[in-house]
Design a protein around this nucleic acid. Structure first.
Length: 265
DNA sequence: CTTCTGAGGGTTAGGAGCAG
DNA sequence: CTGCTCCTAACCCTCAGAAG
């Protein structure tokens, strides 16, 4: 009895459009009891199932949450951070992996990957195991990547390196053109050279052209990537404001405290 | 209406093996 | 040595049915 009351009360106090996960409700009772309450509410149309274990209250005039919001909630439920995949960033810049120097086996694998990518509504990189899940917008792929790539992908400048990394050794990319396409400012151009030290040597080599400088060295810690760039600072302030407004619009203290802040880079 | 049980299918973690 | 794919056991999520 208590489980259903707690769950309904929690959901009713959530701000409009706030996505929640089954996992967040497990403090209110046994898994099975929580599941049944959610199933009943879904059937009644009181809540909307967005993906496995991800719901939103079906308020009047509710706009279906975006794919990014669903991804963020799903990642939050599993304590993960979803960032852009190298292939997605590369595509944004209009770059394509060359199949010229690929072995037949690599070509088959490449084709297979392309097919999987095409069938997905969204593709993100995570640290952990590759997985995928259905959402109301279509299938989303969480692809496991090396921790180095994952950290780099959390930063605007780092994402360019991840894209180049994805293209591979055999690609012939005009780095100057790419830098201007990405609209990198002076400090960012300096940063890309610093971060290149964390990429494979074939990629780092491209950034060793020209005059070498003593003040351009590999960063000692990578934590600044998450807060360092002007883009991240600007977005964080804007998102912080939005988050604060959302959190304050609810009357429940527990709900206010439980709305975790995660972002998709 | 709520809770419990159990089935079925999907997801995750982690190890093995391979390629570069 | 690193990064990636594949495989499998364990775990998770959803749903149906039964009982209180």
């Amino acid at each position: 009895m208590a489980t259903a009351v707690f769950v309904r009360s929690y959901i009713s106090k959530l701000p409009e459009g706030q996505i929640f996960a089954t996992r967040e409700l497990l403090t209110f009772g046994k898994r099975s009891a929580v599941d049944k309450v959610l199933q009943t509410l879904t059937l009644k149309g009181a809540i909307l199932r967005l993906a496995r274990g991800i719901f939103v209250r079906a308020d009047v005039g509710l706009e279906t949450p975006s794919l990014e919001e669903i991804v963020r909630a799903k990642a939050r439920a599993f304590s993960k951070l979803a960032v852009s995949l190298g292939c997605v960033v590369a595509k944004k810049f209009g770059l394509k992996k060359s199949t010229k120097n690929m072995s037949p086996k690599q070509k088959v694998q490449h084709k297979k990957n392309e097919e999987v990518n095409e069938s997905c509504a969204g593709r993100y990189a995570i640290v952990g195991a590759t997985t995928s899940f259905e959402t109301v917008h279509g299938r989303v792929l969480f692809k496991a990547v090396a921790p180095r790539k994952h950290i780099l992908a959390q930063n605007k400048v780092g994402r360019i390196l991840v894209a180049l990394w994805h293209l591979g050794k055999s690609s012939s990319v005009e780095f100057e053109a790419l830098q201007s396409m990405a609209r990198l400012k002076r400090p960012e151009k300096k940063l890309i050279k610093k971060l290149a030290a964390w990429t494979p040597s074939w990629l780092n080599q491209y950034f060793l052209n020209g005059t070498l400088r003593a003040d351009i060295c590999a960063p000692a810690d990578l934590d600044f990537l998450r807060r360092g760039s002007s883009e991240n600072r600007k977005r964080s302030k804007k998102e912080d404001r939005k988050y604060k407004m959302t959190a304050l619009s609810t009357t429940s203290k527990k709900v206010r405290e439980s709305i975790a802040y995660y972002k998709v880079a």
